[in-house]
Design a protein around this nucleic acid. Structure first.
Lengths: 199, 199
DNA sequence: CTGAATATGACCGACCGTCGGTCAATAAAA
DNA sequence: TTTTATTGACCGACGGTCGGTCATATTCAG
């Protein structure tokens, strides 16, 4: 048989090799030739593995997000209070650890708005479901323990999208949003409202 | 002396002439030549008024948003309850009337994330301030009337960004968000929590 | 007062460079 | 020999520029 490369694997390698480039430069400034050179492949080869630059960004976000989620799940075990567990979810938006991923995620969202492709939609939907279930489980536990009012369950979707919304808004405005502080403040105020003991 | 045209005015005319084109096609598919042809000007002339395609989108969003805000303020006078007034703010995200503007706004956000320019940031910041003040005033009235708990004031920023977040999320996912229903449900639940009578 | 000369900015599209995407040729493995 | 992977030369589309043209307001000589 002829040469057989693991296409899936090579995709990942190419994407990873371009990480710094993709994080540092705006995608529009990056040329395919530059990408190929960075990954140490020919320009034509790039097209064997990706349809365009967006797919490359997408692959990388996918890759890093998976790793990120794994780390987060580990951390979740360490969190004690319900409030802390929920805040852990939002920390993606400001923690130093995830800053590269955030830069890429931002570009990914932009593309998803500009020229959505099914794979992107599927990915975003899966992300939503993943985090929704996460938060749902935490809230359910809180309700079961009698800590939280049952109405807390109805707030999950809004709370989730609030995070993304504040993230986007903080990137597109200047001086009106302090992401970490505003996110945590909102969560605290909501918790104050749905914790039974405060009633 | 030579012909002198009102540059500001002509910018608006060009932008307005391209509205349908910009709403219907993805920006990346549109060429400058096409824009020039649609607006009935030469390609070179386009560059006399805009630096690039993004500026054109921006001008149009700006224009339509101003008109939209004016209409909204008029409607606000008709709304009765505090809850209704707040919901009026969110209706931008789903009302038929604003659908063209939303399509453009979506593209605008994408550019603001992809390659932010100061003018875009300023515009978004101004939009934020405008709506923030609006909501703030309504909430303040509600508190003054004794309808709402004072903590309601602390939720404004989160509530505002939740709207944008749910909007973005609904565009980037499939089947998990019903924008109108989810927005209104969240608002209702929050109101149930911050209205004094429900305590 | 008139109209010819002139100055100036609006307008334009031919041209140029860049870059995304293709494909014919090559290499290498089986 | 066949099949697969790789490559960079090549092509055409498109963004952006620039020199030239045109329309009109102003000026001033007659």
């Amino acid at each position: 048989m002829p040469i057989v490369v693991d296409k899936e694997q090579k995709r990942k390698e190419i994407a990873l090799a371009c990480k710094d480039l993709l994080v540092q430069k705006s995608i529009q400034e990056i040329t395919i030739a530059e990408i190929a050179q960075t990954a140490g492949i020919g320009k034509g080869t790039f097209y064997e593995y990706f349809k365009d630059k967006e797919e490359l960004v997408f692959e990388l976000v996918n890759l890093l997000m998976q790793a990120h989620n794994a780390r987060k799940e580990a951390k979740l075990a360490e969190a004690h209070s319900t409030r802390e567990k929920i805040k852990l979810f939002y920390s993606f938006f400001y923690e130093e650890e995830a800053s590269d991923l955030r830069v890429l995620y931002r570009k990914f969202i932009a593309y998803a708005l500009l020229a959505p492709k099914q794979a992107m939609i599927d990915f975003q939907t899966e992300c939503f479901r993943f985090y929704y279930r996460w938060v749902e489980q935490i809230i359910d536990e809180g309700i079961a323990k009698g800590e939280l009012l049952p109405v807390a369950k109805e707030l999950i979707k809004g709370m989730y999208t609030m995070g993304e919304g504040m993230f986007v808004a903080s990137l597109a405005t200047d001086g009106v949003i302090a992401l970490k502080e505003d996110l945590n403040a909102f969560v605290d105020h909501i918790f104050d409202l749905v914790e039974k003991e405060n009633r």
